[in-house]
Design a protein around this nucleic acid. Structure first.
Ligand SMILES: [Zn+2]
Ligand SMILES: [Zn+2]
Ligand SMILES: [Zn+2]
Ligand SMILES: [Zn+2]
Lengths: 162, 162
DNA sequence: GGCGGAATTGATACAAAGTATCATCAGGTG
DNA sequence: CACCTGATGATACTTTGTATCAATTCCGCC
C-alpha cells in the first residue's frame, strides 16, 4: 500500500522500516543498537514533529522511567552522527531524518504557526552554498539552512476566515 | 585613511559611524537611544567577533555593574529588530551587522577553529532560498544560513607545520 | 545459554542560556 | 524642569546542555 505523499515531500517511513535502517547503520559501523536508541527513534517517528530533548525525555518516561537528560543528549548525538536524526538549531529541537539515503545536504522549512517542518533537498540551493564556501576560502563541514515562515495551509487559514 | 579590507569582505565600521547609524535608525522609528544600547554596540564592535549574551554581560560590567541578563537580552532583541545586530543560532551568540544598508539577506560563514565569522550577502544563494520557499508554498519571514568549516587561514595552518 | 569487557547508561550535580514579573529609573517632549 | 512612557534593575525561575563516575548492558565468543 502506497503512503500518501503531499507535494512530493518525502513520506514518513513506518516504524519497522526506520528501525531496520537504524540496525543496518549500526551494524555497518560496528556500533551498538540499544533499547534507548530504538526508543528515541520510535518516539520521534510517533511525534511526527520536532521535539526538544526534554520533550523527548518526557515521552520516554512511561517506558523507561530512568532515562536522564544526559543520556538523551548522548543518544541524540549518536543518532545525528549516524545521520538518522537532525537538529533544528533555531528551535533547539530534534527531528527524524526523512531521507534514508546516505549523506545529504538538507534545508529545513519551518512553519511558525503550526510547527510543521519540511526537510528539503534542493540541489541548486546546496550548490550555491558550496560555491559561497569556495569563494570565501572555507572548507565547509556543516551547512545549516533553516527557513521560517507560514506554510501553505496556515497562510490560507490566516487569510481565510474574514 | 582607508581601512584594510580582506578579500573584499565588508570592513568594520568605526565606532562613531556605528553609533551614528544607530542614532539615525532610532530617530527614524521614534525609538530611544539609551546608554545600554550604545554600550552593547560599542562592545560588540570592540570584540570584533560573536559574543554570547553572557560574555557581553561580563564586558559591560566594568562600565555598568548593574546590567542583568534580562536587560541584555532585551537590548539585543531591540538591536536585532533594528537590523544592527544578528544572532548566530548555531553558536547561541550575537554579532554586529556588517552591512549598514537597509534589510538584507545574509549568510554566515563560521570558522570552527578561530571563530571568525564572515557575513556574506550572496545573491544567488538568497535567490535559491526564495525559490525553495515558493516551491513549497511557504511565505518566508526568516532565512537562517550558517555554514561552518575551516577558514582559509586555519586551513593552511592545519596543513602547514609538518 | 553464559562470560567478559568495552560501550552505554544512570545518578547526581552543575553550568549556560533565556524568560517572567514588578518595581524603579531615565530619555525625550513640551 | 516636570511629566509620562518606555527602558532598565532586581529577583526568581525555566529550559537547555554538560561533567563525572559508578553501575549496567549489549554483543561476540565460547
Ligand atoms: Zn535528513
Ligand atoms: Zn503551518
Ligand atoms: Zn547584516
Ligand atoms: Zn579560522
Amino acid at each position: 500500500m502506497m503512503r500518501k505523499s503531499i507535494k512530493g515531500r518525502a513520506a514518513p517511513e513506518d516504524l519497522p522500516a526506520a528501525l531496520h535502517r537504524l540496525e543496518t547503520l549500526c551494524r555497518e559501523r560496528g556500533q551498538r543498537l540499544t533499547r534507548q536508541r530504538r526508543a528515541v527513534v520510535r518516539q520521534l517517528l510517533a511525534a511526527d514533529r520536532a521535539l526538544s530533548a526534554y520533550e523527548l525525555l518526557e515521552r520516554l518516561r512511561p517506558e523507561d522511567g530512568r532515562a536522564t537528560a544526559a543520556s538523551i543528549y548522548r543518544t541524540l548525538d549518536f543518532l545525528m552522527e549516524l545521520g538518522v536524526v537532525h537538529r533544528l538549531e533555531s528551535k533547539r529541537s530534534f527531528i527524524l531524518c526523512r531521507h534514508p539515503q546516505a549523506p545529504h545536504r538538507v534545508q529545513f522549512l519551518i512553519c511558525r504557526s503550526c510547527g510543521e517542518v519540511i526537510e528539503a533537498e534542493d540541489a541548486r540551493l546546496a550548490a550555491a552554498t558550496e560555491r559561497l564556501g569556495d569563494r570565501l576560502g572555507f572548507a565547509l563541514d556543516q551547512r545549516i539552512v533553516e527557513l521560517t515562515g507560514l506554510c501553505g495551509r496556515c497562510r490560507t487559514r490566516e487569510a481565510g476566515p474574514s
